[in-house]
């Protein structure tokens, strides 16, 4: 669209761009602050009031964390969840969503209603715990994947994307003798790549941030995902506990890690999942192209 720009257009672009840049900076400042703190010498942190740029840089926090077997292990667990879990989630969600997007399918409406009901009723924590226990999944990494494979939300949203793919394409493939599975695999998935990538990212972030299920279902420390370890470092027991035992909890010899160490842990916990994004951004773009080429 190489068209001459009016001054109105220019003004719009300018203010639009300016606003966006300001906005992004506001978004980023706290993160900048976190990163700076993670590289600050602990003594400096406690003695100086406001640190926007450290006087003494220190890598101690990172050295400590990366030398800590438990921490490294939890990163591995979280990576496992984010890859295997995401993949399974995409398959399960996509499969079900595709099936119910095919209009001629029998029991389609029943399945839809079934999904709708579940996403509105949240089962309590205790019943879920009992199911997981009865499946023998306590202390297994699968307890962090299986119960959170998908949700009514995701299935319906994905179905929405599949609905937007013209039926004629699928029909053509079926006439060519493709089975439903290969239609799904060869036509639907590539065509809804932007959606698949977006959902993949949703799932990956979800798994990466797995926390609550982990504290309930995982006892063994060497199976803790990263967020549990992080929470353990960031939150002191007394604030969550309180009540009758608060006084005694305060008395226990628990050393809270230094602030700079906490910040370094946060940086390590955040960076890997953030790095996924630029890799996928390419696919967003490609997916968008496929979308525009279709028909």
């Amino acid at each position: 669209m190489e068209l001459s720009l009016t001054w109105k257009d220019r003004l719009f672009s300018l203010s639009n761009g300016g606003l966006l840049i300001l906005f992004s900076l506001a978004m980023v400042f706290p993160i900048y602050y976190t990163i700076v703190l993670s590289f600050t010498d602990p003594t400096e942190y406690y003695t100086r009031d406001l640190i926007l740029w450290p006087h003494h840089w220190s890598l101690d926090a990172y050295r400590y964390l990366l030398g800590n077997g438990l921490f490294v292990n939890s990163v591995l667990i979280s990576l496992f969840l984010a890859t295997v879990g995401t993949l399974l989630s995409l398959l399960v969600t996509g499969g079900l969503a595709y099936a119910i997007s095919v209009r001629r399918l029998r029991f389609r409406k029943t399945m839809m209603v079934m999904i709708l009901i579940t996403f509105l009723f949240t089962p309590g924590l205790v019943p879920l715990y009992m199911v997981v226990r009865n499946l023998g999944l306590i202390d297994s990494v699968w307890s962090l994947i299986l119960p959170s494979l998908t949700s009514g939300w995701y299935v319906l949203l994905m179905k929405g994307f599949f609905d937007s793919i013209p039926d004629s394409l699928e029909e053509a493939a079926r006439i060519d003798g493709c089975t439903e599975i290969s239609v799904f695999w060869r036509i639907i998935i590539p065509l809804s790549l932007p959606a698949v990538v977006a959902f993949g990212l949703f799932f990956a972030v979800g798994y990466w941030n797995t926390y609550f299920n982990a504290i309930m279902f995982i006892n063994e420390q060497n199976k803790w995902p990263l967020q549990v370890l992080l929470q353990n470092m960031l939150v002191d027991p007394t604030t969550m506990g309180g009540g009758e035992n608060a006084n005694i909890s305060v008395t226990m010899n628990r050393q809270m890690p230094t602030e700079t160490l906490k910040m370094a842990a946060v940086v390590i916990a955040t960076v890997p999942i953030m790095l996924v994004y630029p890799f996928l951004q390419k696919h967003f773009a490609k997916g968008a192209m496929v979308g525009s080429v279709k028909e």
Binding site: N219, V228, P237
Partner: peptide
């Protein structure tokens, strides 16, 4: 022995 972390022991 199952160890409980004090951060979450009460809920658990």
């Amino acid at each position: 022995i199952t160890w409980l972390s004090p951060t979450t022991s009460e809920e658990k």
